[in-house]
């Protein structure tokens, strides 16, 4: 019985899958703290689709996929800024137009110029077949995010909370904005290879949303979210071995389950607490503030 539980560790592809998923899960979760607070959920979804043509072109020319994805992300973000300036359309409409265009172009490129990259890989990821080089790329991006956010989280937080104030105390908000978008794009590429374009956005939102319910301190969020994201991703990959089902699906559903648990049982903002099952002093005030504001 116990030996069966260790089975997945006997296969190299499963060990790689769990390591890769854990790293991607933790790194997306780290960024999800900013995505959730900035209200960038739609942007995260959009970016994960917009990098596809870059990945396709890079595959055609045999270049690193990350490089292609980064270029596509920059072009897409510039495209949004351009369209936003030229029209009075709302941000979500502009996002919708620009990013679906990019995704469509990516699909077309992949179908016109067949490479080792398949459409199903882009859509659903290929965690079980992750190559060593991809794995190193994931570690590299993870380390980069950790270092950048570890050193700059206070400036990024100041920018996310009150961009005008951040500027007024001399911070370079353009650089901070670009940095967040850049990290987000990198996270999208790595997540693309693991859970696929369709589910990237879940990894970029759920852990941050869960951590938000569990704490009132941003510093704590930055620790809780990667733990939830990383552990959830490893557990999802592990569970998929026994279920013999889609890894991406397992990972995201586990993260959703964690979110639901937090929503129900969170000490201060949880549903049970708010309904009066346990009510320490001051409970539910943030909810009231949110409703009032």
């Amino acid at each position: 019985m116990f030996e069966a539980a260790l089975d997945p560790f006997a296969y190299e592809y499963m060990r790689n899958a769990m390591l890769g998923a854990g790293t991607v899960g933790a790194l997306c979760a780290l960024l999800s703290c900013f995505v959730v607070l900035k209200g960038w959920s739609l942007l995260g979804d959009a970016l994960s689709h917009a990098v596809v043509p870059g990945v396709a072109v890079a595959a055609i020319f045999g270049l690193p996929l990350v490089a292609g994805a980064a270029v596509a992300a920059v072009l897409a973000v510039a495209g949004i800024a351009f369209v936003e300036r030229g029209t009075s359309l709302k941000n979500d409409a502009v996002l919708g137009v620009v990013f679906t265009t990019f995704f469509a172009a990516g699909l077309l490129l992949v179908s016109l110029y067949p490479t080792h990259l398949r459409i199903t890989t882009i859509m659903f990821g290929n965690l079980l077949g992750i190559a060593d080089s991809d794995l190193w790329q994931v570690y590299g991006v993870g380390l980069l995010c950790l270092v950048v956010i570890g050193t700059m989280w206070r400036d990024l937080l100041a920018y996310a909370f009150d961009p005008l104030h951040a500027r007024s105390i001399g911070l370079n908000t353009r650089v901070l904005h670009a940095l967040l978008l850049g990290l987000l794009s990198l996270a999208c590429v790595t997540a693309l290879q693991t859970v696929g374009a369709l589910l990237v956005v879940a990894m970029l939102i759920a852990p941050g949303a869960t951590a938000y319910l569990l704490t009132d301190r941003f510093g704590c969020m930055l620790v809780i979210a990667p733990l939830i994201g990383g552990v959830g991703a490893v557990a999802g990959a592990y569970a998929s071995f026994f279920l013999d089902g889609a890894v991406g699906g397992c990972i995201v559903l586990l993260q959703t389950a964690t979110f639901l648990l937090a929503w129900l049982f969170a000490p201060k903002h949880g549903l049970l607490n708010r309904l009066g099952f346990r009510r320490p002093a001051g409970a539910g005030k943030r909810a009231a503030a949110r409703a009032g504001a």
């Binding site: 607070l37 100041a158 909370f161 009150d162 104030h165 911070l171 941003f218």
Partner: peptide, 19 residues
Amino acid sequence: VDWTFPVSVRDVVMMGRQG
């Protein structure tokens, strides 16, 4: 600003020192 941010009063005042 968004007052639902997970920051304390002290955190916000500390942002004045950040520069």
